[in-house]
């Protein structure tokens, strides 16, 4: 991925050399031309086209912000209700993610999901212990975490 970005930068600098014009618009046009060429020639690279990964990162960021909003309103809803109708607990979640980096991002995302908070990660990094505000839907929560977050993170890293 880094190699493709480097090549793209080189293409845009060559474009600026060809026009003898050292301005930001020229650089941007060159960069877009570079993206087009690398996209067209992407089957000669051992890895995927890097814009795919950039797109996945953007999607993950939007997911982060959306979860922050939803979870804040859920928590506020629970706080202002006159009777505390919560049944907290801790449940374990098996994860398929491997590297430390992926697990860190996943646990940050879990901290921002409605009603969940990562308490601990087991030593081998396969299990996350999560404190939930409402245990009634722990199954649902873990399924949701698996479906949306793990998939979104895997799209970025693999």
């Amino acid at each position: 991925m880094a190699l493709q970005i480097l090549l793209n930068l080189i293409i845009s600098i060559v474009w600026m050399f060809l026009h003898n014009d050292w301005s930001a618009p020229r650089f941007i046009v060159g960069y877009i031309i570079g993206i087009l060429f690398i996209g067209l020639l992407s089957r000669f690279w051992p890895h995927d086209f890097y814009m795919k990964r950039v797109w996945a990162i953007l999607k993950l960021l939007v997911l982060f912000i959306k979860e922050l909003f939803v979870s804040s309103f859920v928590v506020i809803g629970l706080i202002v209700r006159p009777k505390l109708a919560i049944r907290p607990g801790i449940f374990a979640l098996q994860t398929e993610l491997k590297t430390d980096w992926e697990i860190t991002v996943l646990s940050c995302l879990i901290c921002l999901t409605p009603g969940t908070l990562t308490l601990d990660v087991s030593k081998d990094g396969r299990t996350l212990y999560i404190h939930a505000m409402d245990m009634d839907d722990a199954e649902l929560l873990s399924q949701q975490i698996k479906d949306s977050f793990e998939k979104a993170i895997m799209e970025v890293t693999r």
Binding site: S72, V75, I79, L84, P88, L112, M133
Partner: peptide
């Protein structure tokens, strides 16, 4: 209002951040 440390940290992390 919330009764224990863990529940309080739910409130503190999410809503305060937002």
């Amino acid at each position: 209002r919330l009764p224990d440390v863990y529940l309080r940290s739910h409130a503190a992390t999410k809503s305060a951040t937002l």
